[in-house]
Amino acid sequence: MYPRAFHYHRAGSLKEAVAMLSQLGGEAKLLAGGQSLIPLMKLRFANPGHLIDLNFISGTSFIKEEDGRLRFGAMTRHAEIEDSSAAKKIPILHDCAAGIADVQVRNRGTIGGSLAEADPSGDWATVLMTLHTELHCLGNQGERTVPIEEFIKDAYTTALAHDELVREITVRKPSPNSGGAYLAFKRCAPVYPTASAAVQLTMEGETCREARIVLGCVGLTPIRAKQAESALRGAAVNEKSVSAAVEAARTASDPQPDMRGSAEYKHTLVGALVKRAIDVARRRALGEKVELSHIYA
């Protein structure tokens, strides 16, 4: 499997990468971790004429805790987030980073690259939509900040202009009585989930004060299940409210049939995942330490 020939450009800075994007036009693509792009190029499903390599730019991979926020450089590898003690403070981030593909892919793949690709099956956007997340995007006109909800436009489509890139992702740390969980069903590690659920709950005793529920791989973009959130918000998290939330989440999902499963099955599956993620999120919000890993076939 050999990609088509392309021109290689090594950017020395993000600014230079932006300049290259505008100069080279539509045939140019950014090379971040490359873990999705390179296989597509090998299969010749993606055939960029120019690749702009971001891997040699220093200072683009970092995790910083500042002003109640976590800041991630766009080139931060999934594995760095998985191993980061700062990121572990927001358990849903660790669930996500540690569950992406396999060790090798996590060592290369980046959070910025994953978000910019906007694959409907990608993990990060689903998880980050449960938190207050902003993407700092750098373009020819300078920098702008885009909330995650506005960043993901459609399958493989983001708010980025052609000559714009993601510089940094910031996540506001949830309050101490907030807890989250991200759970996916995957046939095995190297492939995308069949369905996934990200839940972030803020609890006051047994009452849910705030809820975010986002569904992954069951639509063209991650789906925020607002009705499901309403079912929990202000309610005691019990069998009744949870099953209302699960039902609402299932209704909100809009899956396509593929090799991972039929649409009907994914409807059911995503509900079950939401139910379990709610349970873990609730317990974490109440201070319990809960280990969570994805479900494999």
Partner: peptide, 20 residues
């Protein structure tokens, strides 16, 4: 799988120029 600077990677999914 090989190690690049100690990290396991799938060498079929890295361009040689990236290993500079």
């Amino acid at each position: 799988t090989v190690l690049i600077n100690g990290a396991a990677v799938k060498s079929c999914t890295v361009f040689a120029v990236q290993a500079d």
